[in-house]
């Protein structure tokens, strides 16, 4: 078996709204091996997105630990977490979340710029990434000139920019028609095969689920292995 890339130990998250505590995750112990495409499914409010946000270092757990690529990210400070997100994690969102004022190419360049890659190299690497997702010809287009499927592919190129260990996707096909969804999943499978990147995908979509190498179900903040 290949090496563990993500490991959570007794991971819990409780949201507090005033005096009310809302448990979102309850003692989650999860192990994900490098190179997998993991689907996380479950009804809405079950804690899927919370889990993804915790692994991605966007949020802090109430208790428990998360190791990513051997690094205990629960021990990181705010600045270190930003650095972790920049270099180790790629995010793909349901609504693409490209910066509307920037072209496709510039959107892919952002993580590279944030990481301090010099401008000339940045351009070239971003173009390569767009080529990889089949959108080289659309490099100079703004998001509103691209279809949903194209925007999501740009988002994937952006997520892969700094060659992260894991790519986290929250309902990446949620806003796509089935044809685009299928194309996107084929792209993800292809990238996974070629680069060995680990994908963790929160989804409801059977098109996605069918193409994952492993599925976890979450219900009431607990993992149920499929």
């Amino acid at each position: 078996m290949s090496k563990l890339i993500v490991r959570t130990i007794n991971l819990s998250k409780v949201y507090r709204r005033g005096k009310v505590s809302i448990p979102a995750l309850n003692n989650v112990n999860l192990q994900i091996s490098a190179g997998e495409i993991v689907g996380i499914m479950g009804p809405s409010g079950s804690g899927k997105t919370t889990l993804l946000n915790l692994i991605g270092g966007l949020d802090k757990p109430t208790s428990g630990r998360i190791f990513v690529d051997g690094l205990d990210i629960t021990a990181l400070g705010e600045g270190e977490l930003a650095d972790y997100r920049l270099r180790k994690v790629g995010f793909v969102f349901q609504f693409y979340n490209l910066i509307p004022t920037l072209t496709a190419l510039e959107n892919v360049e952002i993580p590279l710029a944030l990481a301090g890659v010099p401008k000339s190299e940045r351009r070239e690497r971003a173009l390569n990434l767009l080529r990889m997702v089949g959108l080289e010809a659309r490099a100079e287009h703004k998001p509103d000139e691209l279809s949903g499927g194209e925007q999501q592919r740009v988002a994937i190129a952006r997520a892969l920019a700094n060659n992260p260990s894991i790519v986290l996707a929250d309902e990446p096909t949620g806003d796509l028609d089935s044809k685009s969804a299928l194309a996107l999943m084929n792209l993800i499978k292809d990238l996974n095969r070629r680069n060995g990147q680990t994908f963790i995908i929160v989804t409801h979509d059977p098109i996605v689920a069918e193409r994952c190498t492993k599925i976890y179900n979450i219900r009431d903040g607990r993992i149920e292995t499929a």
């Binding site: 991605g56 966007l58 705010e78 600045g79 930003a82 650095d83 972790y84 997100r85 920049l86 270099r87 994690v89 790629g90 995010f91 969102f93 979340n97 910066i99 952002i110 993580p111 944030l114 990481a115 952006r158 997520a159 700094n162």
Partner: peptide, 9 residues
């Protein structure tokens, strides 16, 4: 989004 993809404060 910028923060998620690694922008610092």
């Amino acid at each position: 989004v910028l923060k998620a993809i690694g922008a610092k404060n």
